[in-house]
Amino acid sequence: AEKTGIVNVSSSLNVREGASTSSKVIGSLSGNTKVTIVGEEGAFYKIEYKGSHSYVAKEYIKDIKDE
């Protein structure tokens, strides 16, 4: 089941290729951006990003809701 969340950062949140802080950064999301969460892996959520799937750190996503 998909969930949505809100990016909870003051500046921007790195979007990564994989579920690791050493993964390549492929983009960023600004605070209060709504994201669609399709899964989770460790400390990361797998999200829909620009037509494919990428990862963001869970600690920076708030207001998780089931869609």
Rank of each mutant, 00 (worst) to 15 (best):
H53M: 08
K46F: 04
E59H: 08
S10F: 09
I64A: 08
L29M: 05
R16V: 08
S23A: 13
G31M: 11
K50Y: 10
S23R: 02
S54N: 06
E17A: 10
V38C: 07
N32L: 09
I26A: 04
N14W: 13
L13D: 03
S23P: 01
R16Q: 12
N8I: 13
S10M: 12
G31N: 15
H53K: 05
V56K: 00
S52I: 11
E67V: 14
E41I: 09
V56S: 00
S22W: 07
S22Y: 09
A43H: 09
N8V: 13
T21K: 11
S22G: 09
Y49N: 02
T21A: 12
A57P: 14
G27W: 02
N14A: 15
S20T: 10
Y45Q: 01
Y49H: 05
A1T: 12
F44V: 01
K24N: 08
K62V: 15
E41Q: 08
S54C: 15
E67M: 13
S54K: 10
A19G: 05
E48K: 14
S52E: 08
V56T: 01
G31P: 15
V56D: 00
K34F: 09
E48D: 09
K50T: 04
E48I: 15
Y45I: 03
G5M: 06
A1Q: 13
Y60G: 12
K24W: 04
S10G: 11
G51M: 05
S20H: 09
V9T: 13
S30L: 14
G39H: 03
G39A: 08
G18V: 06
G42C: 05
N14I: 14
G42V: 03
V38K: 06
G5H: 05
Y49S: 01
K58W: 02
G39F: 03
V9Q: 07
N8C: 15
V35F: 03
T21N: 14
K34Y: 10
G51K: 05
S10L: 13
T21L: 15
S30E: 14
I47Q: 00
I6F: 10
K58I: 06
G27E: 02
T4D: 05
G39D: 07
K65G: 11
S10P: 11
I64S: 07
V9F: 07
T21I: 13
E48H: 09
G5S: 04
A1I: 14
K3V: 09
I26C: 07
D63N: 10
D66C: 14
V9I: 11
E17Q: 08
V15P: 01
V38E: 03
S52H: 10
I64Y: 09
S30Y: 09
K34N: 05
D66A: 11
K58Q: 05
F44Y: 10
S22D: 14
F44L: 02
Y60S: 09
S12P: 09
D63G: 08
T4W: 13
S11Q: 11
N32I: 05
Y60E: 07
Y45D: 01
G39S: 06
E2I: 15
D63F: 15
T4Q: 10
S28L: 11
L29P: 00
T4E: 07
I61A: 01
I26G: 01
K58S: 05
S54H: 09
K24G: 06
E40S: 08
S30C: 14
G42I: 02
E41L: 08
S52W: 07
N8W: 13
S52A: 11
V9W: 06
K50C: 12
V56H: 01
K3G: 05
S28T: 14
K34P: 07
Y60A: 09
L13E: 03
G5W: 07
Y49D: 02
D63K: 09
I64P: 06
A1P: 13
S30T: 12
V25E: 03
N8K: 11
D66W: 15
V9Y: 07
I6C: 10
L29N: 00
G5E: 03
L13F: 03
S28K: 13
E41N: 07
L29I: 11
T33W: 05
T33C: 09
G27N: 02
E17H: 05
A57L: 15
S22M: 09
E48T: 09
S12M: 12
G51R: 04
L13S: 04
N14R: 09
F44D: 02
Y60D: 09
T21D: 14
V38G: 01
V35P: 01
S12Q: 12
K62R: 12
G42Q: 05
E2V: 15
N8T: 13
N14S: 14
K65Y: 12
N8L: 09
T21P: 13
G39E: 04
E2H: 15
H53S: 06
I47E: 01
A1F: 14
V25C: 07
I6K: 06
G39W: 03
S23C: 08
S52C: 08
Y55D: 00
G27D: 03
L29F: 03
S11F: 10
Y55G: 00
I47H: 01
K65H: 11
S28F: 11
A1C: 15
K34Q: 10
Y55V: 00
E41D: 09
S28R: 11
K58Y: 02
S22K: 09
A57C: 14
T21Y: 15
G31D: 11
K65F: 10
G18Q: 13
T33M: 09
V35Q: 00
Y60Q: 06
S20Y: 08
T33S: 10
T21M: 15
I47C: 02
E2P: 15
V38I: 12
K58P: 00
G5V: 05
A19D: 02
H53F: 13
K3D: 03
S52G: 15
K58T: 03
A1W: 14
R16N: 07
L13Y: 03
G31F: 11
S30F: 09
L29A: 02
H53A: 07
I47Y: 00
